[in-house]
Nucleic acid binder design. Structure first.
Lengths: 340, 340
DNA sequence: TACCGTTCAGACAACGTTGTCATAGCCGCC
DNA sequence: GGCGGCTATGACAACGTTGTCTGAACGGTA
């Protein structure tokens, strides 16, 4: 029994009614007599008919789906964000296409345009690229885009950001308040917007406390095990080593903890981004938490607002706050005689 | 400039050619003279034309997309699996619709049927429901499904599982080899396939070692903080407390570690599922690792194999191995005088 | 010149749905 | 009885593509 998928035509034939009547029943349009509707329902059930959304949406000009371009679907930050977007989309009867750019501008562009070719109703993008001019025709054509976590380049669009400077500043101030004067900043690659924004917050905190900015205490690079090992060796060694570390994101923090486990020093540490098990480690890790779910939710709501209402209004930028969660690692005093 | 989206017709008009010629150029069908093609390309570029995949796919009967139903997109297990699926899909020029069932059969069904209504080419499902008969018409209609991590109920379909029994048995044997005789099993809700499969492995290991199965040392329930707290209090107390714990999954392990941090006992511990930072904890956590990426990859490849070839062949079941990673927590000897 | 094959191009139907319009039947009212 | 208005229904075009078919123009060959 290799039955092909039944269409409305098949249903109509079986029920002995016109095609349009089936459509009316399926869409609950009313103005169908009860017993006709009954016959149609029976035929639908018998054939296992399910309306072809593709055809419907072609006719209607919208697809009830949105595209989500992330750095890496598997990353906790991204997956929590995805979940929140999905939630909002569901409330609007939309599905979500998600894809990973891997921080590669070319891939970001490909993915985004693939979504546009599928005529998604809108886009949510965690941008990796250095230009988004390629989106101009799409936006003009009526596919709004909302940027998350990082601002778009070269174009104007709704954006949801985190207060990176403020959060970083809070983190560093916290360390300063616990007596630290030599605080290292270990961040991600400087090409990443949040990395440099957090560096700025770090510097602002130092400056506000009258502490010098020592470039030898900063490290901005992709957080590979090796890069972090070298960076740690550098900032924890020498005449006047760092007594505290500020880690620029999740993945940096994790690598740092991994390396730190192999070393004798126990510097104070504050990380940007919360992560699972931060509370279980010894000592528990103090973090400046952002709320990826809130980021996703806000972005999705902004998008559906655009879709529902004025599509040409001025672009909005929302900046979400961060929250310091003291757990222990950031409250460690200066440890003397730790090093070699 | 509120330009609507250009269609092939617009391109054809601008280039002064027929509609079909544009189609030919876009699809690289050949048999278009070079300078006509040139004119068409120019028109395409000028208008910013992008082919409407929805229309194309309606015509062709396939959608170049697959549906992925997970427990929770935000869970690391799911997100790593998603990523692997995405990777394979990309190689087949497909996009991935992903959605979370939240372990709710109704939601699983809704989501799956929503994907079917979109006429995804195939489905990959981490099932939550207790029956999948609702899928029969869809599969008959030519939408193959592959089940992951748990087998389907009531129907026959390709399935990718992990060797849960074997993995659990290995974990418990490892604890036994380190001298433990009182080993507790803390698992997820018994309605979850993997939970009972792992319980079976736990029992098999006990039996093989000639140890009695003591029901008071097992706990199967959703791993809320409270449930785990109570369970731990129970198995670690009394005359003959557990000296070792076997945790049935990731989330159980994490909750257990969280509770354990508040208690004096330091039982040996092996977890099913690896997780980030397991190596950084004190002591580092011994686990039986499964490979979610491999699960996803295998499932996706199975699906595309079906899509490409014989859609009616016998359902295959693949069972992936697990790997014991000793890190410390599973090698702890029996600790005496720990408890109250 | 007549014929054939090849190359390029367009007209037209089809995919499965929905929007627009027309029509048939019926009721009630002047 | 004629008319307006209502309800239930279906015919038909349209959404934006692609597959099929047909035809025009051209070159080569007998």
């Amino acid at each position: 029994m290799m039955s092909a998928r039944p269409t409305m035509k098949d249903v109509a034939a079986l029920a002995g009614v016109g095609l349009k009547t089936v459509s009316r029943v399926v869409n609950n349009e009313g103005s169908v007599s009860p017993d006709t509707a009954e016959r149609v329902h029976a035929a639908i059930a018998k054939l296992g008919f399910r309306r072809n959304e593709g055809a419907r949406l072609l006719r209607q000009g919208r697809t009830a789906s949105i595209g989500l371009v992330l750095e890496d679907v598997a990353d906790p930050f991204s997956s929590i964000l995805t979940r929140a977007v999905e939630e909002v989309a569901r409330r609007h009867d939309s599905l979500v296409f998600a894809g990973s750019s891997d921080e590669d501008p070319v891939r970001e562009r490909e993915l985004t345009l693939a979504f546009c070719a599928r005529r998604v109703d809108g886009l949510i993008i965690v941008p990796a690229g250095d230009t988004h001019r390629y989106l101009v025709p799409e936006i003009m054509a009526g596919t709004p885009a909302v940027f998350v976590d990082r601002p778009p380049q070269d174009i104007n669009a709704d954006t949801v950001l985190v207060d990176n400077e403020g959060g970083a500043q809070t983190a560093v101030e916290h360390l300063i308040a616990h007596g630290h004067r030599r605080i290292a900043f270990l961040g991600d690659a400087p090409s990443i917007f949040t990395a440099t924004a957090r560096l700025a917050g770090y510097r602002a905190a130092l400056e506000a406390a009258g502490l010098p900015y020592d470039e030898s205490l900063t490290h901005l690079a992709p957080p590979t095990a090796e890069a972090i090992r070298h960076a740690l060796a550098r900032v924890l060694a020498g005449q006047d080593p760092a007594t505290a570390l500020f880690c620029g994101n999740n993945r940096v923090t994790v690598q740092v903890l991994r390396e730190l486990a192999k070393r004798p020093e126990r510097p104070a540490l504050v990380g940007f981004d919360d992560f699972e098990l931060a509370d279980v480690l010894q000592p528990p890790i103090t973090v400046v938490a952002q709320d990826p779910a809130e980021l996703g939710r806000t972005a999705a709501e902004l998008l559906f607002e655009r879709l529902g209402g004025d599509r040409q209004g001025r672009a909005k930028t929302v900046r979400l706050p961060t929250r310091l969660i003291p757990r222990g690692s950031g409250e460690l005093p200066i440890a003397r005689g730790n090093g070699t």
